[in-house]
Write a protein that binds this DNA or RNA. Structure first.
Lengths: 349, 349
DNA sequence: TTGAAAGCGGTACCAA
DNA sequence: TTGGTACCGCTTTCAA
């Protein structure tokens, strides 16, 4: 920049203004500067600009696991929205570890990002207090916290659980089990939905139809397999099972098939998440669509709004509607065999 | 920082040195400063530090598609390695669009990152020249460019293609087709491997056993389906098919099953990539493991080395060995029915 | 319309 | 061991 100024006999201020196309610059000067910029292939140093303006044009995204298709799709959505507005995305993975997540978040805070988007693995809200102290806006995604009035984008988990369970009931299942997830909003919500659906159907299940979450198994598939094996040993055994998420459901299905039983004739299975290979599985898996890409995009847009806001705004709660996607794994009755929808692409919110 | 200095009656320089635990600071002073830092919960502004030192402690990762499990795993590996060394990761997605990728890269260059890791969608090497001009180190991942002496981490694609094809032949296939990928190093390499394997087996296939890549279909699964339909109409039709990647293979399998044929009895199928749900597919899919996580970690380490290097070092080529993972989709003979390996977790390089 | 000077929040160098 | 000063590259304010 200095060079350009010197070469052209103008000041750095002038160059700076041209770069940000300020209006108060003579047309001729502007052209000369622009020309020289092109020639030198000059690009302003965004680090310096960030220091001077206090805006980094960078947003942080913290997810528990990038490889989980749900978070990958969220990340993609966020990234697409931010890119269009000139923002970059710093990605941090917490590996489902609250401690690690805290460290990552504090590193991001030190970087003075403009905002944070977090799918949190925390148990407490302490970390979020810290973020608030730094006065940088943040958006929670997928998992939320009771009593924390924060911006949130996600799906109505209770409704998701209810939809899934009701679907099983409508498919003729009378002994419906649930393989539950961790004690976070998603897991608890879906569990609550399961219970509500059973209540509405006037069904009562024995407590061991919800196998306890074994501590510290991060591998959802293995968890599903283990839990399903337990369920199959019960008498009477379940004839339908709603699984916390799709990887868990895949594990459960594998356990069922290994036991020599049929899906859905002996046991119907439904998952949650509707990941994109569900249709091609050994038995195509019914699931609840979570609109992951939409969540990503909405979170991105909300974030941009927050950054743009002059004054702190009231936290916004964006709840998307989960949708049933019925496939072979629950096709037990005639009307269930003609599924409501077979593709996942028709989501459009 | 200024505040701390004032509060304690020392200079900012002293505080700065304590922060980076310089040795030449009195123990007592240091303790006082550290105490105050804790009290204020002070964190140095990394933007400012970056401007002063010229090091951002940030690495950029550019991938064609985050949702593709291969790149998600690479990203995870990279992220894990960088985190341990205090680096952050800026993620950019090119959506397989060379133009977009260029834009993203130039934005990253403007941010003065310490290094770039790129799984490129480019057709030419022009972009890389630009990067070189900026004198920031970069590592290519997965896809490489003939005649570009750049750092590279990936798998030997030709060997991958050869392994896959040879496996089909050993399973008793005599009419082996190939659903090819795009004209980038991965696609071309696997195609070359396919040809080499056939040569070694003394087999000759008609040209239409390699359906042409239809332009601009980014959906691998659809591409696999379409290509497979064409193959099934040939006379004689193939009894084995090697697919460019796993999504393509899934599409191909779906086409085969829809045509009322059996896998592997009528047509054996093998993919490439060994994504983590391969085992749970309608027909568990044989594949070539690409060690995506290892690629990510190796690329991360190599990047850190490059950043640490005093002088520019000679580009390093890290070629990992692809491995066959045989599953049901190719289990046609007795010895193939007892697969070499059934899991993907034993990769360990 | 243009530019000089003063920062942004740190680090580096060298003298005290 | 400590600290003054210049500077990283850009923006902002205000005077010319």
């Amino acid at each position: 920049m200095k060079d350009i100024a010197r070469d052209l006999g103008v000041s750095v201020v002038t160059v700076s203004k041209v770069l940000r196309n300020h209006t108060d610059i003579g047309e001729e000067t502007r052209q000369r500067v622009l020309k020289r910029i092109k020639e030198l292939n000059y690009q302003p140093n965004l680090t310096a600009r960030a220091l001077a303006t206090g805006k980094t044009y960078t947003v942080g995204l913290v997810v528990p696991d990038l490889v989980h298709p749900f978070f990958a799709e969220v990340a993609k959505g966020v990234s697409a929205v931010l890119r269009k507005s000139g923002y970059s995305l710093i990605l941090a993975s917490s590996e489902e570890d609250p401690k690690l997540e805290q460290q990552e978040i504090s590193r991001l805070l030190a970087r003075r990002l403009d905002a944070l988007i977090i799918a949190s693995a925390q148990w407490t809200v302490e970390t979020f207090r810290t973020i608030e102290e730094h006065k940088i806006p943040y958006v929670l995604v997928d998992r939320r916290f009771a009593g924390l009035p924060a911006n949130f984008v996600g799906v109505d988990d209770e409704l998701a659980g209810e939809l899934a369970t009701t679907h099983l009931v409508q498919c003729g299942c009378r002994r419906v089990a649930h393989i539950r997830g961790p004690e976070v909003s998603t897991g608890l919500g879906r569990l609550a939905g399961y219970r509500r659906a059973l209540e509405q159907a006037n069904l009562k299940m024995p407590p061991d139809y919800i196998p306890p979450a074994t501590a510290g198994d991060d591998d959802s598939e293995m968890r599903g397999r283990t839990a399903m094996r337990m369920l199959l040993q019960l008498d009477p055994r379940p004839d339908g099972v709603f699984c916390y998420n799709d990887p868990t459901a895949i594990g459960a299905m594998n356990a069922i098939l290994e036991a020599g039983l049929r899906i859905p004739e002996d046991v119907a299975v439904i998952g949650c998440g509707n990941v994109h290979y569900d249709e091609s599985l050994r038995v195509p898996l019914s699931s609840i669509d979570q609109q992951s890409a939409v969540i990503g995009r909405k979170a991105g847009r909300l974030t941009l709004n927050l950054i743009g806001a002059k004054r702190p705004v009231r936290p916004k709660l964006i709840l998307l509607e989960p949708r049933l996607v019925a496939r072979a794994s629950t096709a037990r009755l005639l009307d269930a065999a003609r599924p409501l929808t077979g593709s996942r692409s028709e989501s459009s919110v």
